[in-house]
Write a protein that binds this DNA or RNA. Structure first.
Length: 155
DNA sequence: GCCAACGTTGGC
DNA sequence: GCCAACGTTGGC
C-alpha cells in the first residue's frame, strides 16, 4: 500500500467540499508541477491520501481520501477559459494528469503543522521540510500511521 | 508583509 | 549548458 499527501487551500477546495460532492468524489485537477504530476502517475486505485489544508489560518491535515481513479489527462490544460490552461499542451500528448479522489474520513482531531512538528515519528516527514512547496507528497506507512493516531482516527 | 526554497525563463 | 532574474508557494 502506498500513501500520499495532497495540499489544497480550504477556501478554494476543502475536505468538506470533497465530502459534499456526489459520491464524495472529485477530480484533483490543476496540478502544474512535474514532480507532483509524476507522483500522481504513480498512484494506484485504493491508495490513501492525507488531505492537507494550506495557506489558511491553521494549516494541517483534515482527514483522509482514497484514490478511486488512476492518472488520466487533466482536461483543464486544454480549456482556454480555465485558469489551468496550458497553451503548450497537445491533445495527442497531454502534459498534465489528474487522479480521481473520494472522501473517506474527517479526523476527529485536526492535525496541525505545529502538532506534527512536535511529533518525533514525523521528524523526517517531507511536508515539514523547510521551504517545501510540493503539492503532492509521498508518505511512508509509519508516517501515515502516526498522523492517523494524532488525528484520533482508527482507519 | 517577510522570507526561504525552488521552479521557470531567457540571455548568452 | 550556464546562470541570473523573476515568479510562486506557503509558513510564520
Amino acid at each position: 500500500m502506498h500513501y500520499w499527501l495532497m495540499k489544497s487551500e480550504p477556501d478554494v477546495f476543502s475536505l468538506e467540499h470533497l465530502r459534499a460532492k456526489p459520491q464524495g468524489t472529485a477530480p484533483w485537477d490543476g496540478v502544474r508541477n512535474y514532480q507532483a504530476r509524476n507522483f500522481m502517475r504513480a498512484m494506484q486505485v485504493g491508495n490513501r491520501m492525507l488531505f492537507h489544508h494550506s495557506s489558511c489560518p491553521e494549516p494541517g491535515i483534515a482527514g483522509v481520501a482514497e484514490i478511486v481513479g488512476a492518472a488520466r489527462p487533466d482536461p483543464t490544460q486544454f480549456d482556454p477559459k480555465s485558469e489551468f490552461f496550458d497553451p503548450g499542451a497537445k491533445a495527442a500528448d497531454p502534459r498534465w494528469s489528474l487522479v480521481d479522489v473520494r472522501y473517506l474520513a474527517t479526523f476527529p482531531k485536526f492535525v496541525s503543522l505545529a502538532t506534527m512538528r512536535e511529533t518525533a515519528a514525523l521528524k523526517d516527514f517531507r511536508l515539514l521540510w523547510p521551504g517545501n512547496r510540493l503539492s503532492v507528497i509521498p508518505v511512508s506507512p509509519a508516517e501515515y500511521k502516526a498522523i492517523c493516531k494524532l488525528g484520533g482516527w482508527k482507519g
